[in-house]
Every structure is written in structure tokens, then in C-alpha cells.
Design a protein around this nucleic acid. Sequence first.
DNA 1: CGACAACCATACATTGACGAATGTAAAAAC
DNA 2: GTTTTTACATTCGTCAATGTATGGTTGTCG
Lengths: 205, 205
Amino acid sequence: MARKTKAEAAATREALLDAAEEIFLVKGVARTSLEQIARHAGMTRGAVYWHFRNKADLFRAMLNRVRMPFQELVEEIGDPGLAEAPLEAVRLACLSGFERLERPRYRRVHAILIHHCEVFGDIDPLAMQNEMAEESCGALRDYLQCAARLGQLREDLSPELAAKLLQSMLGGLFHDWLRNHEQFSIVEQGMVLVETQLSLFSRQG
Amino acid sequence: MARKTKAEAAATREALLDAAEEIFLVKGVARTSLEQIARHAGMTRGAVYWHFRNKADLFRAMLNRVRMPFQELVEEIGDPGLAEAPLEAVRLACLSGFERLERPRYRRVHAILIHHCEVFGDIDPLAMQNEMAEESCGALRDYLQCAARLGQLREDLSPELAAKLLQSMLGGLFHDWLRNHEQFSIVEQGMVLVETQLSLFSRQG
DNA sequence: CGACAACCATACATTGACGAATGTAAAAAC
DNA sequence: GTTTTTACATTCGTCAATGTATGGTTGTCG
């Protein structure tokens, strides 16, 4: 095959990743061959093995397009008055996260990671989920501890417990929605749940 | 090979299912061959193909050993005074469910279904999870509606919303614990979360 | 304006899992 | 006691997927 220009080569790389997302989501990671991915992108396996060493490498590249640490969601808001309103910061961060998840690429990749892949090669999706969970839980705990210091939490509720409650609820919602996103809108439903949960946490709930 | 007695044959069938559970949990369903299952049970693939038509059939048989509908958990309690205390009924049902999950067989099979298998053959684990989720959510809604009629819920909280909140929280807890059960005890941690959530729901929280 | 290396297609070798066919020895049935 | 069936073990053909080696253009850089 003839050599492509650098931009064209980068485009076929993205096309391969797009095709992988779509097929992984439908057939699962284990049951999709590199041949199917290549054909769906209008290429052959040669292109795949040029851009990626193997399926695990391709999988990692797919994940790297959608990294979304929790801290980024808060910084993304950029409101400087949030240090005194940690509960509102959590609310806005959830909103920001939900809106991102509605973008097809984010939704698909997270659905694949959580619901459509097993361990394979040197990839351990459960370990990745553990990292994500611990990171978000830690961030939530920080904000709720801050809220507790400011007296914005019920006195009979420890911030650690509230953080775990909220994190479990968010995780459950996340899983449910990723299982089939057509059942409900995660922005609408999620914000209703987050707001009622936070109002139950707050002093004058 | 020599023929075994009926009891011995049933025992090897169970041994094959036990072996499948253990290996599925470690290597994932897709990456374990029937050969590995048979060898781990001290048999060969011939035994597997005698007792099961194929891998999907074996998988279904594995699931059938641990069916646990939500309603059963309530009936299992058998306390007749529960019609007037629906929140307590929910609490006890959660306790009963948590205790069951700590039994290795239940824990392993659910972990496999949720975290260690993709679609394969005519098996769709996500559809099964959907059924489980809708069933438990429906049951929770019934109990919380009952609680609302009895005036045991905060007036500013609809029972439907409370049910979704609780169901999401339980689902998140469920997923987190099944991901690695050594992180915490689901009976202890789960009951703390359920009780605080229910107390936040109740009128004099 | 060459020469090289990038970009991808094609062909080939290897692996390993499945499923079916067949063998067999003992338990059940009569 | 003979026959039949059960409960496996063994073997083998097939096929799909992987990985590698190789070839052929054509951008791109000195």
C-alpha cells in the first residue's frame, strides 16, 4: 500500500479506534477480532498491527482518549466562590460529569470498560475501576469534610459516611445508565437524585 | 471410563460447576476453556460434554444454583408484624441479602455475572442484570409507597424517588463489593449505609 | 531529486478451542 | 447372567484468531 500523509495516517488511527469502540460495545471485547475492527474501518489487519502492537495496546489507546479525573470536573467549572459552598461544588461537578457522559465517545468507552470486557492480556478493567472509585470517593470525602467544618451538614451524619453513601449512589446510577442509556437521561435523572441526596445531607433538609 | 453411580455422577456434575466458578472468577468466562474447567475438577472435556451441551449451557446451570429473587428474602424472614413497618422490612431484607452474598457460592457467581463475563453464545448478562434491577426496584417502590401511606416518610420526599435513590445506592455498593470483597464486609458496611439512608428517609430522621 | 522510511495490504505459520466421533468399562435393568 | 445404558476418556478434524514476514507504493527529508 502507498504511504499516506501524516494527517491521513492519524485519521486512520482514529478511525480504527472509533470502529473498535462501536464493535466492542455490541459484541464485547473478547468476541471481536482485529479483523472485524479493521474491516469496519475500511482497512485490513495490517493497518491495525501497524498502529498498535496488539489488542491490549489498542484497548489502552481507546481508554486514553477519554480520561476524566474527578478533580478536572471541579476545576473545569472555575467558579472562585466554591470554596465556601462545597455541596454546590459537588453538585456542579456531578452535572459536568453527567454532561460529559452523554457525549457518545465517553459513554461508549465507559460502557465497554464496565460492562463489555473481561480481563485479557495485561489488561485488568476491575483494577482500573477500583482506581476510579477510590479517586472519586476520596474527592467526595474531602468536599463533605469541608462542608462539615462549615456546619452545612446534619450533625448526626459523619462526612465519611455521607461520602460513601453518595459515592455508592453515583456508582449505581452510573452502572444502571451505562447498561442501557436509552432508559433515561442521566443528566435529568442523575441531577434529581444528586440534589435530593444532597438536600437530605444538608442541615435544613 | 467406568460408569459411576447416580450419586457419584451428580457429585462430578457439581464439581464441574464448582471448578467453573473458580476459574471463571479468576480468568473471566471468555478466556477459560472447557479443558481448563475439566482439568481443575480432575476430569477431561468428555465429562463436561456429557453433563452440558456447551459452555453456555454450563453457564446457565451455574446461575441456576443461586437464584435469589428479592421477594424471597422478605418471605424468608416470616415476621408477621412487618406489614405495618415496611422500612424495617426493607432493612431486614437487605440484611438477609447481604448475608447470603457472603456465602462463597453466591458471591462468586454474582461477581462472575457482573464483572467477569461478556455476551457470548445466547447469553446476555446485561439483560439478566436489567431484570434483576427492575425487579428489586419495583419491590423497593412497593415498600416505600406503603411507608408513605403510613406517614413514615418525610413529606417532601416522594416514594418513587426514595426507591430509586435506595436502589442506586444498593447497586453501587453491590458492584463495589463484588469487585473485591476483601476491601470491606458487606454485612457491616452495607447495613450502616442502609440504616443511615433509611433514617434520612424517615419522618423523624 | 533520489533514498529512505512510513503506511498499509497480503500471504503464511502457529496456536488453541470447539465439537463430534469413537472407545470402554461398569452400573442398571430385565 | 445377559443386555443395555450410563458416564466418562481419547482422539481427531476444523476453524477462527493471532502474530509475523514480506512486498509495494508514495510522502518526506536531506
